[in-house]
């Protein structure tokens, strides 16, 4: 990268605004959410082969794993099921 003056540096600083804080905080929870999904999925897959999973089933599986069926976790679970189905 060529040497820059202060004006160019200031301009480059403006190129990277911060995303909303809650986006960042949510992304930071990915490892813990993934661990929770790893607990729940085996309980779910045995009863949900080849059909669309209902929210109530998801909630039951989450509870069976000893977790709280919070909206974020249900949403992450749906995403993961769709992703895995898509990659098959």
């Amino acid at each position: 990268m060529a040497t820059k003056d202060e004006r160019q540096i200031a301009k480059l600083l403006r190129e990277l605004p911060s995303p909303p804080g809650h986006w960042v905080e949510r992304a930071k929870t990915i490892p813990s959410v993934e661990r929770q999904l790893d607990q729940v999925l085996p309980l779910l897959e045995s009863e949900a082969k080849g059909r669309k999973v209902q929210t109530a089933e998801l909630e039951r599986a989450i509870e069976a794993a000893g977790l709280e069926p919070e909206a974020d976790l249900i949403e992450a679970l749906v995403d993961r099921i769709e992703r895995e189905a898509g990659s098959r």
Partner: peptide, 28 residues
């Protein structure tokens, strides 16, 4: 996070809701 956000919001000009979904998806 700033890098990914800049690509989505400024590079591809996604609206806020789409940018948020894709942002989470990228990190996931």
């Amino acid at each position: 996070s700033r890098y990914v956000y800049a690509i989505l919001a400024r590079g591809f000009e996604l609206n806020n809701a789409d940018a948020e979904d894709v942002f989470q998806d990228v990190f996931s």
